[in-house]
Nucleic acid binder design. Structure first.
Lengths: 199, 199
DNA sequence: GTGTCAATTGACATGGTGTCAAGCGCCCTT
DNA sequence: AAGGGCGCTTGACACCATGTCAATTGACAC
């Protein structure tokens, strides 16, 4: 079981979140999390039976805390496909730095841990739906470049917006977050948008 | 020291290579490599003092075996910037599947192992030089889009061509290698090339 | 034969995850 | 006020991979 005392449970989640955010990808041990939560290591296992399970629960907690859902509201509310594409890139691109710590941890486990892989893929699938919606909206407006099928365009946008690419551009290449967002918006336009595909 | 008997040394490297290629990213243990080389685990340590050192040596061995250098010759030999961009994408994009196994192993160690990180970054730096050269050639021809500075264009091309992106598009999205290459060439054109920037 | 050197064997340290069992303190019940 | 249940603690332990160490073997060289 992994529920009984909700107090301690959320203390653990908070601790995990803090450490993952602060560590920016540095590996965080069960011991560290326990210590931070002011609890014994074994108590952590009383609530989450594996590290993977804890990390996964942490992602849900993160979404709750940061209001992941609400962020996407503006992108859904926009009228034109182009606006929607922009709004989505802005929302997701702005969200990445907040989830980066935990994303990194999950990503690192992906290769060895089945559960971690599944959790991560699930979330990326959610994100992909956003991409797909933006592409569909473009298509509806007859502004989607005829170079790409809908599936292919979605694949490309999804890949462009990956956490790994954000990492490479901002952390390795030193781009400021602002530039990342602006550039990705402009790239997406160049790649996906045409004047009017119906003519 | 890590040299004395070149026979055994290359047997180890071959074993590592085989396993990494076959495993397509699955973690390969020192024990596995030793067994494959028909040698005791400790003998491996006689030649390579750490796993990281072995993996790094394996990348050099790989380059040697696959003739990494020669692959880039056609891209250097081309006249126009556009041809060079195409040739580079083809050469590098075609090389990725061959190095994928070891790339994955190195990438997985990057977070925890200093040496592995350095080795990987070094190789990516080499690759980046190819990107930079292609961008410079475009610029020289006045065909580089004025949207991007040379540095920024290099950053983008470098990121587009990352192993992670190849992985996502081919393995996760299921693109055939052929489609990967063609699409990346076409994307690069759309993103970087203009009719003639000097007018 | 004796030395040298690659390789073998087997034991051991380390560091992290996950397991197990016993015990402790606190609140709830009756 | 005694007894139970429950959340947590303590400490020992198994596991697994990397890396270390020391003693030994076997071949070839002089």
């Amino acid at each position: 079981m992994s529920s009984d005392n909700p107090e301690t449970r959320t203390r653990i989640l908070k601790a995990a979140l803090n450490l993952l955010e602060a560590g920016q990808g540095k590996s965080v041990r069960m011991t560290d999390i326990a210590k931070r939560a002011g609890i014994s290591r074994q108590a952590v296992y009383l609530h989450f039976s594996t590290r993977a399970e804890l990390l996964i629960a942490t992602t849900y907690y993160l979404d709750e805390v940061k209001g992941a859902e609400e962020r996407l509201v503006p992108s859904r509310a926009t009228r034109s496909g182009i606006e929607r594409l922009d709004a989505f890139i802005e929302a997701w691109g702005g969200y990445i730095p907040e989830i980066y710590g935990i994303a990194k941890a999950l990503l690192a486990m992906k290769d060895t841990d089945e559960a971690a892989a599944k959790a991560w893929d699930e979330r990326m699938q959610d994100m992909r739906e956003g991409c797909e919606a933006a592409i569909k909206a473009l298509k509806r407006d007859n502004r989607l470049s005829p170079h790409h099928s809908q599936k292919k365009a979605t694949d490309i946008l999804w890949t462009m917006l990956s956490v790994r690419n954000w990492e490479q551009l901002t952390i390795e290449c030193g781009w400021p977050q602002e530039q990342y967002i602006e550039t990705l918006k402009s790239l997406a336009r160049r790649v996906f948008v045409v004047e009017d595909a119906s003519n």
